[in-house]
Simulated assay, not measured.
Amino acid sequence: MTKRTLLYAALAVGAFLSVFPYLLVVLTAFKTRTQLNSTPPWLPAMPPTTANLAELLGGDFPHYIANTLLMTAALTAGQLVFTTFAAYAFARLRFRGREGLFWLYVATMMVPGAVTVIPLFLIMRQLGLVNTWWGLLLPYLLGTPYGIFLMRQFFRGLPASLEEAARIDGAGPLKILLRILLPLSRPALGTLAIITVISSWNNFLWPLIITSGDDTKVITVAIAGLKGGIGVDYNLMMAGGLIALVPMVAIFVFFQRYIIRSVVLTGLK
């Protein structure tokens, strides 16, 4: 009983430390500057105000939200399409150097993303894609090592007898993928889609470097831009953070089982 009590106490402390920053975002978003300076950060405003949210939503912020939605949708669609084809090739097709090429590609996950930012920017500048949608999307549109690894492991867990039966019936690789493997891979595809949506929505460093105009500005860069030349308007920044946070919290609440599935890959029961 004592061990269980200590365990739950430790879990409660960990949960509080994880949730407390988000609680501060919500509380600060509904405070005025006067209330922020006169009340402790962990206490709610009395009375709360929606002026910060109204100021953001009444300006260009909805346009930045639309840009983020467009970027997230394009990257998710590209990830699902190109990752699926690449993973199928690595899992089922036989060609020289398949295993070496796959593990070499997966090894790139060990390289920090910040290391490749400057080379990517130089490439985009040579192609004339700086501050364009193509420059924003191309580095992530054609799939990622993690996505290919996830789908490849799932495909390898499916029974090979299904493909053998399809080949006997005259089906080719493309038909096997589209008609047999993809319908069985809905859990893995859902997992990949959720992870891609979250990572795309929260992406900050690459959009900050490759874009400079309002036409391609996304919500993370817009929130960082709320910092004024004299000081930081924490009320507006927290209101922007709250707007960006709500969709991600909703996705996690409704699709958390798919996120857990990204760690524990399952095949057919």
Rank of each mutant, 00 (worst) to 15 (best):
T220L: 05
P173G: 08
A66P: 01
L70G: 02
R96F: 14
T39I: 05
L129I: 11
I260C: 00
R94H: 07
L181D: 09
G267C: 04
F90D: 08
K31V: 08
G135K: 04
T34Y: 04
T196Y: 14
V197W: 01
L208R: 06
L24R: 02
T266E: 15
V263Y: 13
I180F: 06
V25N: 00
S38C: 00
K175T: 05
R152H: 13
G97C: 13
F204I: 07
V19I: 15
R186F: 12
P48D: 05
P40S: 03
W133A: 13
T68M: 06
L162V: 09
W134R: 04
F102S: 12
F121D: 12
S199A: 10
V232Q: 13
T191P: 07
G59P: 02
L184I: 06
E163D: 03
A87T: 08
I219W: 00
Y258M: 10
Y8C: 01
G100W: 10
F82P: 13
L138A: 15
R152K: 15
M1P: 07
I210R: 00
Y140S: 15
A51W: 00
Y234R: 01
L120I: 04
A12V: 15
W42Y: 15
Y22P: 00
V218A: 05
M46E: 08
F149G: 08
I123K: 01
F95Y: 15
M110H: 09
P173S: 06
T266H: 09
S18I: 07
W133V: 11
P139G: 08
G147E: 03
M237F: 02
A250M: 08
T216E: 03
A91V: 01
A77G: 15
L101P: 01
I195K: 12
I210W: 06
G228E: 12
M71S: 14
L265D: 04
R4H: 14
L138V: 15
V263P: 00
V26I: 08
R96N: 03
V130I: 14
L53R: 04
R4D: 15
V26M: 08
L70C: 01
G135Y: 09
T34L: 10
I118Q: 07
D214H: 12
S200T: 05
A239Y: 02
T68A: 08
F61P: 00
T32L: 10
F255R: 10
P139C: 05
A87K: 01
P207H: 02
L23P: 01
L69M: 11
F149Y: 12
I65W: 02
L129R: 13
T39K: 02
W201K: 13
G231D: 15
A9T: 14
S262V: 10
R33C: 00
G157Q: 06
I195M: 14
V249S: 03
S200D: 05
Q153E: 14
